[in-house]
Design a binder for these strands. Structure first.
Lengths: 338, 338
DNA sequence: GAATTTTACGAAAACGGTTTCGTGTTGATA
DNA sequence: TATCAACACGAAACCGTTTTCGTAAAATTC
């Protein structure tokens, strides 16, 4: 087993000083051609690579970025990570992924863990629990220390930092408008508690109904606790309420809803049409395939990474923060197109 | 903005030496109660936290583990990461995720990037390209340097290290046997090129047919390039070959196959039953829901993490490697149960 | 009161690099 | 031949810790 070789080893072996070796390997003008050749050849032979940790300590730059997300089994977050990773890698950064598991405490622990020098900046999306508690001290703590932060998707006004979001309100508005335009009048909504994005989508839903001159009927709105997929509640909802269209704030609700509706003998989209949020594989491969609002997670991740790295590498800390609003796309599939 | 405080700051501020501060904060017996109290109070007040990078350099331990996977949008890999992350976090480790994107070159680059001190050990699953090339020098390089490595799922005999896999051959065998036992005789297989796991599953398929006394018919096997989801090829396959059951080496093939079969007016599972590999949300929410071989990615990840961390923290390097074989579970759903 | 042991702390090395500055040697210049 | 710049390299500081070892001063022992 060949252990990693250091500058010290090379210096000792070649009878020169550590500084000479360091300079020679950076092709410094200070060192003679001869010496450089010797040192470089030796280094190549023994496959010398500088130790990242030592460089990090010296530069106070780790070239790592921390990504904290609530959950990784969600396709959306997965695509964001992918976008972050791809972009970060191109710029020589590694990605440390931490999962808060929708828990406030884990979010705090993860942030503290990484904030002590392990990373140059954070990209994060809030856990539901954090949004419910409305407690952002751990995040302010981090930004106060001057660690750059970019929040995406689930964000809050309480923290000043760069943000990347889609306009959830407007996306829902457009989806509902589309349903109205195609002649639907009894449009239901299945949403979730305590989630900034769900709330925004709900607002868009109401606004679209209002603008469309459709009276608001609270019975058409089913609010479920966060993704518990309470099958009985969904079943009961469709048993007791009648509608000709449904907007769901996530894929799972929509897929499950379609199933219940189909079991009742109704046809999709003839009798009821469905639109879901977050276009993932489920939507694409569902039967019928589900029309969905695509959030373009990968671009979101790439943009977040770009904003973060630009800030990290930008010496002068301008206290100006941007919020980038990305376009969503309504992808129409069998669940709305006859 | 309060910058991070260091031992040096505390020492200067309190008129003691750095070593005294360091010891006081570790509650060393060497330091008087008085001094300790002063220092600890001061440290608490200014929220002192030791710098991870400095500690890493000193200890030659980063408390980071690198995970290299081919793809993150695959549900299976996602669950593995989750398992790794959960377990690693419990033991105080962070997880650096790198995506090889099924590319040999990216796999090499990622490994080299992390191998220079950024991590204490690797957990990885091979990219298709690496398996096709059969070139594992970058991996051997890493293990030669004494960096612990655990491979999972897509592994190779060429590299000596700890491994965690499921018995793909046996899992496929059992799935096919189940189909035979339920009276199916024309059992098709949709598999993939150049993938260790796919090959093993194919072996199990043949073996089960042989043991079941069913003649092998190569026409019943469709081999697709890696997950291109060649829709035309799948369509053509079902148009020209007739079968009463299909085993697919991944979810997508199965879901897409079911759709084609349904469009032809055949009933699932009455006319054709389906079993897929890798139980993910698609299987669960498909219509009909898809019976699948569950690989228990989360346990796989947790076990891999445990093996890795045990090895990392174990000083004496016993050159003995284990291969842990996990049980898979056939989850029966509507696509096989009448 | 001298010798010895504790007590309480500081100096310094080490981890593996980078970088500034100092210096002995060489060759050119006046 | 004295002066000086250029060249080629080394010493040392620094990043932020931990840890070993040395040592004054205080406390204890005889």
């Amino acid at each position: 087993m060949r252990r990693k070789i250091t500058l010290k080893h090379i210096a000792r072996e070649l009878g020169v000083s550590i500084s000479t070796v360091s300079k020679a390997l950076k092709n410094s003008e200070e060192i003679s051609r001869d010496t450089k050749d010797r040192i470089q050849a030796f280094a190549k032979l023994y496959n010398y690579k500088p130790n990242n940790i030592a460089i990090s300590l010296k530069n106070k730059r780790t070239k790592n970025i921390g990504v904290i997300i609530p959950n990784i089994v969600h396709h959306f977050f997965t695509t964001v990570i992918r976008g972050v990773e791809k972009y970060a890698n191109e710029r020589g950064y590694n990605v440390i992924v931490c999962l808060s598991d929708e828990s406030f405490d884990k979010e705090v622990i993860n942030m503290e863990m990484l904030a002590n020098g392990s990373i140059d900046g954070f990209i994060m999306s809030l856990s539901t629990e954090t949004q419910a508690k409305n407690d952002y001290n751990h995040i302010k703590e981090v930004t106060n220390q001057g660690i750059p932060l970019v929040m995406f998707d689930r964000v809050t006004d309480e923290v000043e930092c760069d943000k990347v979001i889609i306009d959830d309100r407007d996306s829902a508005y457009k989806a509902v408008k589309k349903l109205i335009d195609s002649g639907r009048r009894n449009i239901a909504l299945i949403n979730t508690e305590n989630l900034s994005v769900s709330n925004a989508r709900t607002e868009g839903y109401y606004q679209a109904l209002q603008d469309g001159g459709i009276p608001i009927n609270k019975d058409l709105v089913l609010t479920l606790p966060f993704e518990s997929i309470d099958e009985a509640a969904i079943q009961h909802f469709f048993d007791t309420v009648s509608m000709d269209a449904v907007l769901c704030v996530n894929e799972i609700f929509a897929i499950y809803g379609m199933r219940v509706v189909q079991k009742k003998g109704l046809k999709i989209p003839k009798d009821v049409s469905f639109i879901g949020f977050t276009d993932g594989p489920l939507s694409k491969y569902a039967n019928p395939s589900l029309s969905a609002v695509a959030q373009h997670g990968e671009s979101m991740g790439a943009i977040a990474a770009q904003m973060l790295i630009d800030k990290v590498e930008n010496e002068e800390e301008d206290e100006v923060y941007r919020t980038e609003i990305l376009d969503s796309t309504l992808i129409e599939r069998e669940s709305t197109i006859n």
